[in-house]
Simulated scan of single mutants.
Amino acid sequence: MTAAYLEEAVSMMDAAFFRHETVSRCLGLPNDTAALAELKQLTTAAAKDGVSVIAIDKTTNKVIGAAFNKLQVKDDTAFANFANSWKQKRAKAIVKFMAEVDSLYNFFDKCGVDCLLEFMFVGTLPAYRKKGVAKKLCEASIEIGKDLARGVNVKRSVDGRKLRLEPVPKIITAIFSCEATKVIGKKLGFKVVVEEKFEEYEFEGRNFASVVGDEISTFTLEYRDLK
């Protein structure tokens, strides 16, 4: 991710992720333009960590996919506080959902780390799916994490700030909410630590299972070492 492509990549995620991803649909995000506008703040903030990745169609120079990755540090509440400043309930709800799922397995304590790299949002434009783009985005993100873990500062600033090497992640984590991403996780050596049924979650009285139907029954919380 570079400054030149940041705005396009943030806008692209509206069509590539928030209008199609399972939890986003369960929360009704595709039809909530105000919430989608607030979520652009979230993706932009994540990109400022300098560890996000984009995929570009070389024939058009168009951003067709992205992995917005976030460096999470133990006991840092800045990101949660950021979301708490929003007004839109659906925007707040997706951050709350991610926080609740993350709380099911304390990576910092269980893995003995003080920093991790999180796949926050990974999306590919519909016309470019089933071509291996999402897997490549995840592979590139893992390589960034490995470089940082080795002490090589490959962070790329998107706002002109100089980014220090620290904090250095030791693991990479993800919530996989569709079968395609679960397959990618398995291929890339991720370990499932939590698997939850969608029927155990609801928003405004509507059970998630009533939205996903037979499409998928569970989502997973997974991780792998950056070695």
Rank of each mutant, 00 (worst) to 15 (best):
L116F: 12
F108A: 03
E100I: 02
T44W: 07
Q88G: 01
F108M: 05
T60N: 09
V51R: 02
I175C: 06
F108Q: 04
R164S: 13
R161E: 12
E38W: 07
L226P: 06
R161Y: 03
P169G: 03
K146F: 02
A34H: 07
S157P: 09
I216K: 13
S141A: 15
H20N: 09
L117A: 04
D147A: 15
W86D: 03
P169R: 11
F119M: 06
F108Y: 13
L221D: 09
A83Y: 02
L221P: 10
K187F: 01
P169V: 06
K155P: 11
I144D: 07
F219V: 10
L71K: 10
K182Y: 00
V193Q: 10
A134W: 01
K182H: 11
D225Q: 12
K135R: 13
V133M: 07
K136Y: 02
I64W: 04
V193S: 14
K110L: 14
S52R: 01
V211E: 14
E222T: 14
A180L: 13
Q41G: 04
V211D: 11
D75W: 02
N61F: 02
N207F: 08
N153I: 06
E21K: 04
E204K: 13
L42C: 10
I94G: 01
L188S: 08
D225N: 14
K40W: 04
G151S: 08
C178N: 15
A180T: 14
L125M: 09
K48M: 01
I144S: 11
S157G: 08
D14Q: 11
A209K: 15
V193K: 14
T77I: 09
T22P: 04
A149F: 04
S24R: 01
P169F: 10
E21N: 00
S103H: 06
C138S: 14
D57E: 14
Y5M: 01
A127D: 15
L6R: 08
G123V: 05
R129F: 09
D114G: 10
E200I: 00
S210Y: 03
R129E: 13
